[in-house]
Design a protein around this nucleic acid. Sequence first.
DNA 1: CAAAACTGCGAACGGTGTTTGCAGATTACA
DNA 2: TGTAATCTGCAAACACCGTTCGCAGTTTTG
Lengths: 224, 224
Amino acid sequence: MSDASPHSQRDSIWRRPARGTRGPAPAHTRDEIVAAAIAIADADGLAAVSMRAVATRLGTGAASLYRYLSSRDDLLDLMADRVAAELRPYPEPEGDWLNGMVRIARAQRAVHERHPWLSELSQRASAIGPEALAFFDACLRIMAPVPATPTAKLEAVAVMNGISILFARKRTAGEAFTFAGLDITPYPHLLAALAQPPAAPPAVDLFERAQRSLLRGLLAPDPA
Amino acid sequence: MSDASPHSQRDSIWRRPARGTRGPAPAHTRDEIVAAAIAIADADGLAAVSMRAVATRLGTGAASLYRYLSSRDDLLDLMADRVAAELRPYPEPEGDWLNGMVRIARAQRAVHERHPWLSELSQRASAIGPEALAFFDACLRIMAPVPATPTAKLEAVAVMNGISILFARKRTAGEAFTFAGLDITPYPHLLAALAQPPAAPPAVDLFERAQRSLLRGLLAPDPA
DNA sequence: CAAAACTGCGAACGGTGTTTGCAGATTACA
DNA sequence: TGTAATCTGCAAACACCGTTCGCAGTTTTG
């Protein structure tokens, strides 16, 4: 039994960077690897984050990474949790809770615009790391005065999260209606809508309006 | 020039199933291929939809598919547009427009629950096909009495779409908080929330409530 | 009947994530 | 000190992926 895998199977990656005391000092750290992966993703998208590319950027071989990670999925999980730290500092629960939540939502959108690949990750399972926990905790702290069940609050946070992603993606990707060569004439309402001039941006930020009406609607006391 | 690619480069796949009149009759159709791909995705997820797997299911070779499609991305676009047809029939614009939109949203969620892989596709670019156009047209038709700009309406539809995906995913994937072995004690609010009993499902459907408050909030006349 | 146009598809190319096996470094223990 | 245990880095290989190439075979055109 000389070359057992360094990670017992389902260690879920978080917590376990400690190394044994026997061999030579590792040439890299997990943080280094994650930082390299994030740099690649920021520059060329998530698809460019291959084990070989990350390894090359660190001046090593692809197989070496498996001394620090047990799979590419682990690397993606670490990336997601690391950029989640950019949400800090979380607002203090002063004043209206709705304003606090909107602050958090804005920060979320900003992170997603800085790292457009993040939205691709957040729909994978098992992407919950320590920073995600801190995020949920901060949200619950802000929503403490709201008279709703914890379940309702967490679901509201999940929906808020989805909205933030939606708006961030709309801003990064043009989201353009480029129906390349499709015939729109069978769709009269769509045709009329597109004939209209693009219209000025609304007075109130659409993002903020969506978040407010949603959080208010979900956390309002159950209507009779 | 005997073996030109059958598809001129950016034909965007939609419209062009007609075959030349010269060679032998094709052994398959594009619809057959798309159906096979959807069956595989429904059974084993989108990752299992490889050209080789689809071809095998049709009893042919992977290379043969390229006589009908120009890439795997085209296949994915066709899959998305095909399941979008399951939204039909669209409700007639009778009565309250909000009820109509909620009906559409429910249908969306149902489709996403039937085909969990669909949400992975809807965040790709260029996935707009004829059925997507019909969908937008139907939404605009329902929202005709709403006094808002076409842009605002289309954005509201996009957000509604995102919410539907969010809830569908929460139902298919357990979305469980499985922080495998993470220490929650540093997060007191989260700890308290999880200590609480899971609580009964809310009286009003959360999904419907989210959609209503969101559509109403986004399409209400601009507040002063 | 020859030429043209098409279909099916085996084989290959370059890419991917991951495993294996081993040389060499470091430490632990006798 | 010496040897055994354990660790690191990493080239090579494996299985799979999307895609292209080239060709045999089929059908239609002129």
